[in-house]
Nucleic acid binder design. Sequence first.
DNA 1: GCCGTTTTCGGCCCGACTGTTTTCAGTCG
Length: 576
Amino acid sequence: MPDPTNAEIAALLDELGDLYELDGAIVHRVLAYRNAAKAVRDATTSVAARTRAGTVTEIAGIGKTLEEKLRALVETGEIPAMTKLRAKFPPGLVEMTRLPGLGPKRARKLFDELGIDSVQALATAAQAQRLRGIKGFGPKFEESVLAAIDAGAGDAPRRRTPLHEALATAEPLLTALREHPASEKVELAGSARRWADSVKDLDIIATASDPRALAEGFAELDLLESSSGIGEAGARGRTHNGLSVDLKIVAPAQFGNLLQHFTGSKHHNVALREAAVKRGLHVSEYGILDDATGQTHHCETEQEVYEVLGIPYPEPELRENRGELSPDFQPPELVRLEDLRGDLHSHTVASDGHGTIREMATAAMQRGHEYLAITDHSASHGFGNDVSPAELRKHMAAVRRVSDELDGITLLAGSEVNILPDGSLDYDDELLEQLDWVVASVHTAFGMSGEDMTARIVRAIEHPLVDVLGHPTGRLIEQRAPYAVDMDAVIDAAARTSTFLEINSSPRRRDLSDVHARAAAAAGVKLLVDSDAHRTTTLDTQRWGIATARRAWLRPQDVANTLPLDELLALRRGGR
DNA sequence: GCCGTTTTCGGCCCGACTGTTTTCAGTCG
């Protein structure tokens, strides 16, 4: 039986929290499960392995009791308490609590008193007006719960919007607000400001000379499909692509407090407030109350908020409660887009790209790059645009010719080679040896078992002619889960063989993820932020890869393509 | 259930909104 992944364990802990909540456990106990689930999800090593090794309680949020439950899970495949609770509460009950306005307490009451155990049963009872007989429930509740069910709440949660789509929606809104005569300061907050993989909605914080005029101007924007709640405090809107936007207009003296609060993350804010309480300070979105003086600090800027608390300012990308609030936090000098000197993964018309070698090279130069690897797909790509060995030889010659002809950029003749299901590559070594640069990636047979997939990828990493593992987990944000692969083993193999790991910058991928990239860097692996561009314009996707790198706490020295080409190549195994 | 430069017991972020209440519990972000 394979070990459960961190994501699987986290999901179980979240479910256990839900079940204990229905069981009437005190809120802090439930919160402990939710915190533990987050800690597991963010853990940079295998929690199952750490459970076996007896070091799992070193993870903040996991104590003796949870260690016991994790041990049972790892050794027997189940947690006894969970089995018991699952038998006690039908799964429909947990679904009911996903309805707005219906939490665990009231769901439990409906289950106990009316036997309602599913969203369907709830709808039937509400229609028959049977809910109003229960103390604490009335006609309004019946009405709103039916409306919510009608609107599809309680179905699968709505897909979060990938960041690049969200920012493409947000940027014209921000511009329009900044151009409005009544606006003063306008900033994007929320997970979009933290450059998260995806967002639920957009939060915008503003100050204005005439708040109501700004709110009305916002509501009238053609960019919005509808709006509501227009007033001096702001307005709420919905864009044509279905994203909801909250505009909050605040007094200039509190702009910093509000921006900090609505930038989050929620976990960062909770931890921040806990830390503040220990210093006799109480943080809210409106200010910081000082117990000692009874005074409330209002902060015009976010920097002031952290200053008053005596906490070093963390960049928004770091605010996930992953160590940025620990007492020994030193703000890292995070890598920036302008630190990159080149790009080591790109495609041309030779495979499935849309630009010629020269077009891609010229576009890379225009972006200030000193080098670009041309890495078209290999022989078995399978989409009708593969490159046969004979074609590859010609292609290599063409890449080198263009490289010689252009001043100011060096092209590497490379390939993105398929990792076949058995871990072998689909060009033979004799051909690979002639390439300047080899990216190895999985493009087929995603459904393998974790054990097989891990062995497959580790074998490719161990191949002496492979320079970098491309999009290591295969995930597509909000679309496809990573393949079952033991990332500890992959990172270990990469560290052992001096193989680079890629942060593929395609905004649909951002793979490695922030958590895995951080683990890789901690293990001494060098990362590459690559565009995987398929046309000249998508060379710009490196901004998303850099966002992930920053969320992974990476500094320039962690990212190899911040180096001049000769220094980068010297880091390859054996300085090949 | 976790955790400790107040504590191994007794705390555990903060505020707003809602509907059902006669002072508030539950829910949400």
